[in-house]
């Protein structure tokens, strides 16, 4: 265990006020102020009415592409499909070399070697213009497997070269009030993210907010994910409806903001699933900027999990560049 991990773990225990038992976590998570659904949704709707024009919009569109985890998570995925996805991630618009690449590609664990291979030298830290490989793990999307299997799933993906791991929390345990179990599992997965050289794959903790159902649960799960050491908290697998919504993302950003207020640390947020249009994506950027600040609009702190969003952004980009509307035949399918 690295020094930072020890410090982090101890600090979390100090915040919780004891060991990460169900009772202690319950006391802590249920002591945080509640969420009024109507007020939250109204605030999100208000943020959605912000109007972005011209130069801001060009900046926003490029930034959206740079924050996307270009994703394929299908049972039918093949090495060929993954190679195609990687090409799209690296060069979203072949006709325009100024178009930035996406932040990462996101695939199932067994597809990691193909993604790594296809990226080649393009693979790297998205903060520095590279494209990272993210793998979903821990028996994604349901998470219904033994801890041993989840850890093996994680370690396997990391060993294959995954830079980022998107894990799912045990929603069943969460809803049953077994917060200690959820916490311990995240800690264990985080440990499984460690590489032999001592570095770690970044851990995104998927809450699957559509199954948690209530905003109070989302808020508590967000705290749980952060306390247990997640680098990111992520809304959804994309396999459950509703996936990412603006109010849920706003709520998670508020938790991240409060965590920084308390500890000075920054945690990332990733809405995933259901964000298909540039217009929607811009609402998320506005929400990030007005809730935690613009410094969060960077790949190490904010991502979109999406598959079809990239093409809509490209169409809008072309419209801005040429002044007329583009069409789907002018963007590539991956």
């Amino acid at each position: 265990m690295t020094l930072t991990q020890i410090v982090q773990g101890e600090r979390s225990l100090a915040v919780i006020g004891g060991e990460a038992t169900d009772a202690n976590l319950r006391r802590y998570l249920h002591g945080i102020p509640g969420v009024d659904a109507v007020g939250l949704e109204q605030r999100a709707a208000g943020l959605g009415t912000r109007s972005i024009k011209t130069t801001s919009k060009a900046w926003a569109l490029d930034r959206i592409i740079g924050l996307i985890d270009q994703t394929t998570l299908e049972g039918a995925d093949t090495p060929g499909k993954v190679r195609s996805l990687v090409a799209k991630a690296v060069t979203p618009d072949p006709a325009d070399p100024t178009c930035p690449s996406t932040a990462a590609v996101c695939v199932y664990g067994d597809m990691v070697p193909f993604a790594v291979e296809a990226l080649g030298s393009a693979r790297g830290d998205p903060e520095k213009g590279g494209v990272a490989v993210a793998a979903v793990a821990t028996a994604f999307p349901s998470g219904r497997a033994s801890l041993a299997v989840k850890l093996a799933d994680t370690a396997d993906a990391v060993a294959a070269g995954a830079d980022e791991i998107d894990m799912v929390i045990d929603r069943g345990a969460f809803l049953a009030g077994r917060y200690g179990m959820v916490y311990d599992e995240i800690v264990a997965v985080k440990e499984a993210c460690r590489r032999t050289d001592g570095t770690s794959a970044h851990l995104k903790v998927i809450l699957e907010t559509g199954e948690l159902n209530t905003y109070d649960n989302v808020r508590r799960a967000s705290w749980l994910g952060i306390l247990a050491g997640g680098d990111f908290i992520k809304t959804s697998t994309g396999k459950v409806a509703p996936a990412a919504t603006l109010p849920v993302t706003l709520l998670m950003l508020e938790v991240v903001r409060d965590w920084r207020r308390m500890t000075g640390e920054r945690v990332g947020v990733k809405p995933a699933g259901g964000i298909r249009s540039s217009k929607d994506a811009i609402k998320y950027l506005v929400t990030v900027a007005e809730t935690v600040g613009e410094e969060w609009l960077t790949p190490s702190l904010f991502r979109f999990g999406a598959s079809s969003l990239t093409n809509d952004v490209l169409l809008q980009r072309q419209k801005l560049a040429t002044g007329h509307y583009s069409g789907p035949d002018y963007v590539t399918i991956d």
Partner: peptide, 10 residues
């Protein structure tokens, strides 16, 4: 420019 400098949208 920063993102929050929303362009005027009168």
């Amino acid at each position: 420019m920063t993102f929050l400098d929303y362009a005027p949208a009168p």
